[in-house]
Design a binder for these strands. Structure first.
Lengths: 256, 256
DNA sequence: AACTATTGTGCGTTATACGCACATTAAGTC
DNA sequence: GACTTAATGTGCGTATAACGCACAATAGTT
């Protein structure tokens, strides 16, 4: 996670600002006026206008004379990444079988910076879900998959994670003390799994295991999550850990 | 689909070129050297290098000293669009029920330019599939969903579609004669559904209906697709059309 | 009609991004 | 090790891309 700032003359401010215009759009601002885009992207109206017109020309944005909105074409910007993760297609049958077996949702994620990013997901029938899951980012420090992924970092990488860390509590249960978090990561390393109990969200329990490659290196983490009202932490460990490990092993062999 | 070229001084070439670097990555080129990126993005090595370094700095690309690859963060560029399409979450239960009922895959797409773009998908258990479906683009002229969407265009819009059209056959069954295609679109308008039989892919049959809003305007199309060896075109129309229409009506009411 | 907010746009100026050319490094072959 | 080929790193002079301002035009509200 080394971040060395590049030579200023190698940095393209126009590209960076243009991408800021794209990311100014979000779930709550899926359509905006020119002035709103300029405010959210933190640039002058004229600059925002040029970038919006450029994105319209390229087909990534559309406008009706007053409001601008993103088009499906912007998916192509992330699509190259998504399709490059095609190896997770092979995990799908194992995840489906696991979901049927434990009757809970199942996800796979990778570590990126201080977050985990979902790369595959099979929801249980009870929870409505679309491909929204893919690309979702959650903080690594208070998720079961995050702790499993942190457990595989080298000591220097883990040190940097904790140095950069900004551990804000998301629920009254969220652990934020770096020493306690380090201990949890060590436990995950020792036990080969991690469980998180209502630290990310009240009512949410999840248990995760690593997915390794043939060399034993951790590629991703896979979890099963459920509602605290339906299963105790102890029950989750007793009933879900074995099928999780079994599915992870199947995925390991499938990826070989 | 009017494409008026904007004033050259309003067009940001740096943003456009930077985006070309991102889209240079694809399924077959998920990691590339600097020179490969420059070739695929059609720019000098020095320019490609500056954009790659900029994208690294922003976290969208990572490099190991030789190869560059996209990071999950690029999903955030398209994610704003994806989350803005959150209304399709409500379609999910109807699609799942339909998939269970007819034992085939089900998708929803919207029209963009001359393509359809998948916005929701529920695959049947037999076909391995992840969220890859979302964002997939297919030509509108030879897909059942495409013809249903074309059927709702205004005459001037439809004229432009055919004027811009480049209808290449994908299989020996693909219709490419604009007059025949117009007739198929008219049939879709008249019948309220369209069926395509092995025009996109040998062995693939699909039937689609429109999803309308309360005002009757077509928002999207939904299809069910199956293999030609398992079901005849006539059987598909007789067995799948009613449940498709029923599911589309349910989605219409759910979106209200 | 008056006022406020927003958008469109020409243009002089600034600084961003360009590509070249040379040095360095890496990889492959003999 | 020597040689060749390919790829990469980078400084820098130059051109022009992009900047923001300021004013006109439009839209919405009262």
């Amino acid at each position: 996670m080394s971040t060395t700032t590049i030579n200023a003359r190698d940095f393209s401010t126009s590209l960076a600002r243009g991408l800021r215009v794209i990311t100014a759009f979000d779930r709550d601002n899926d359509e905006m006026t020119l002035s709103e885009v300029a405010r959210r992207a933190d640039m002058t109206r004229a600059a925002a206008r040029r970038y919006l017109l450029t994105l319209c020309e390229l087909g990534y944005v559309t406008g009706d004379g007053k409001y601008f909105r993103l088009t499906p074409r912007v998916l192509e910007l992330g699509f190259a990444f998504l399709t490059s993760m095609h190896i997770w297609e092979r995990a799908q049958p194992f995840m489906e079988r696991l979901t049927e077996q434990v009757n809970e949702s199942c996800s796979i994620s990778v570590l990126e910076g201080s977050d985990i990013v979902y790369v595959a997901r099979v929801p249980t029938k009870r929870i409505m879900s679309v491909a929204l899951g893919i690309g979702t980012r959650l903080p690594a420090f208070c998720t079961s998959m995050g702790r499993v992924l942190l457990a595989d970092l080298r000591p220097s990488e883990l040190d940097q994670f904790f140095n950069d860390g900004d551990f804000k509590p998301l629920t009254p249960h969220t652990l934020t003390d770096p020493a306690l978090l380090r201990e949890k990561v060590s436990e995950a390393r020792r036990d080969g799994y991690a469980m998180v109990d209502q630290e990310l969200e009240i009512g949410l329990r999840s248990i995760a295991v690593p997915i390794r490659n043939q060399a034993g290196r951790v590629l991703a983490a896979m979890n099963v999550s459920g509602h605290a009202s339906r299963i105790t932490a102890e029950e989750m460990q007793q009933r879900y850990l074995s099928p999780l490990l079994y599915a992870a092993e199947g995925i390991r062999m499938a990826l070989a």
